[in-house]
Amino acid sequence: MAEQVDARGLSCPQPVIMTHNKMKELKKGIFEVMVDTDTSRENISRLARNEGWEVVESKKTQDSGYIITLKKE
């Protein structure tokens, strides 16, 4: 199973910082981020673009959050 960052219940910029830290730790590969606001989802997709990670999938969850899958070759 892919590594996960659970940033639910946190407001920006915390989810962005946690995602950024995971990117720095893994350097490449694949991981998932769980967030519960549109702002977090948008901000993480901007961070991904800037850091050269691809947003493979952004899936809406039942509790109206998102699971974002990020990948870097």
């Binding site: 407001s11 920006c12 962005v16 702002t39 948008e42 993480i44 800037n50």
Partner: peptide, 12 residues
């Protein structure tokens, strides 16, 4: 900072 996703919720 905006490029790295440090955008306040208010902006959206």
């Amino acid at each position: 900072y905006a490029l790295t996703g440090l955008i306040p919720a208010g902006s959206y």
